[in-house]
Simulated assay, not measured.
Amino acid sequence: MSGVKELFRRRTRELPAPVEPGGLAAEADGVRVVRGRRAVLDGARIGVRAGEVLALVGPNGAGKSTLLSVLAGDLAPAAGTVRIGGRAAGEWSAPELALRRAVLPQTAELSFPFPVADVVRMGRAPWAGTAREAEDGAAVAEAMAATEVTEFAARPFSALSGGERARVALARVLAQRTGLLLLDEPTAALDLRHQELVLRVCRERAAAGDAVVVVLHDLGLAAAHADRVGVVHGGGVAADGPPAEVFGEELLSRVYRQPVEVFPHPRTGVPQVVPHRDPIAAHIGSHRPA
C-alpha cells in the first residue's frame, strides 16, 4: 500500500468539484469501438447524471461492458467523444481520473493473499497526500459495513467465496468516494439478499448526489432500482429513459430475440419482464413423470 500511495503523492492533482444534481458527470457521444473486424459500438450515445442510477442492459455481446469502459475513460474510442467531469476523458491523467470515478470490473483477482481490510483500503490510494486522506479510516469502515464484509476484515481475500470477493471489490470502490461509480455486473455472483443489498447501496449513493452506472442482466433488478435504463443493442443505445417507459414488449422482444411479456407488479407498479411461454408446453411439462 505504501508504494501505491507514494505514486499518487508525487503528482499534483486538482481535487474534483461536486457535480450539481442532474448535471452530467460523464457522457459518450457518437462513440465507435472496433474489436477485430466488428464494430462493438457504432455511434453510441449516453449521458450519466449526478443523483441517478443508470442501468445498462442488453443481450450478451451487445457492448454493455465496452460502453462502461468508454464512460470510465479506460477505453479510448476510435471515433466520437467522451467527457468526464466536463473535460475530455483523454485530458485527465490516470491519478486525476481516479479522483473522479471508481470502476468495478466483472472479475476481482489478486495474486497475493492480502487481508480484506487492505484490499478495501486500496480504494483510498488516489487521495494520498490530499486533504481527504484524513477520511481513509472512516471511508474504509463505512464501505465494509455497507457491503457486510466487516467480519472478513482479517481474512485473506483469496480465501473468500466468489460472492464474498464481489462484495469486497465493491467495498473498495465505495471507499474510493468518487462522484461517479461504474459497476460491471456487480450482482452476478450474489444471492438474492446481497443482490438487493448492492443495488440498495447504489440507490443510496445516487440519493447522496453521486452518478451510478451499473451493467445488469436481470431486467427485474434494473426496473426496480434504476432511475434510467439504457438498452444497448445494434452498436448503440436503442432506448434510454425510465424503466416504465423503456421496457416495452415489442422493444425487448426484438432486442433479446425472445418474446417477452411486461406487466406491472401488483403492489409497486414496477415493470415485470418474463419470457413468453406456451401455456400448453408448460402444462405438458408439469405432468411429466418423476
Rank of each mutant, 00 (worst) to 15 (best):
V274A: 14
A169N: 02
S286N: 02
R203K: 09
T187M: 07
H217P: 11
V229Q: 13
G51T: 10
P95W: 06
V103N: 01
A154P: 00
V119D: 01
A244G: 13
A79C: 06
V198N: 04
A281F: 00
A102W: 07
T147Y: 08
L24V: 15
V246A: 13
D42F: 02
K5Q: 13
R83V: 15
E185S: 09
A76R: 15
P271F: 03
G241F: 14
I284K: 01
A88V: 10
H276F: 09
V232S: 12
A222G: 11
D136Q: 06
R37I: 00
S286W: 03
L97D: 08
T81G: 12
P18C: 01
L41Y: 04
V19H: 05
Q176C: 09
L190P: 07
F114G: 01
R228K: 14
L252S: 08
G248N: 11
A76K: 12
A281W: 00
R13T: 13
E151K: 11
R193S: 13
A206T: 05
A125W: 06
G129V: 13
P115E: 02
E135V: 04
Y256K: 06
A143G: 09
N60W: 04
Q195D: 10
E204V: 04
G248P: 12
V215T: 09
R172Q: 14
A39V: 01
V168I: 07
G234N: 08
V119H: 02
P289H: 13
V120E: 02
A207E: 15
D42V: 02
V237R: 02
V212W: 03
L97T: 08
L71W: 10
D227R: 05
A145R: 15
G129I: 13
P59H: 14
V201Q: 04
R32A: 14
V40I: 15
G86A: 11
R49K: 14
V120F: 03
E109I: 00
A62W: 03
T150V: 15
G248S: 13
L180D: 02
S93N: 04
A188T: 09
R101T: 12
I84N: 04
G269P: 01
H217L: 11
A28K: 10
E96L: 07
L104G: 06
V53L: 12
E6H: 12
L75F: 07
V246Y: 07
V103W: 01
F114V: 05
F263C: 00
A223E: 05
E20Q: 10
P264R: 03
A39P: 01
D118K: 02
R167W: 09
R45F: 12
V274Q: 05
A76G: 03
E133R: 09
D74S: 10
I280T: 05
Q258P: 00
E96S: 12
L197T: 12
D29Q: 14
G137M: 00
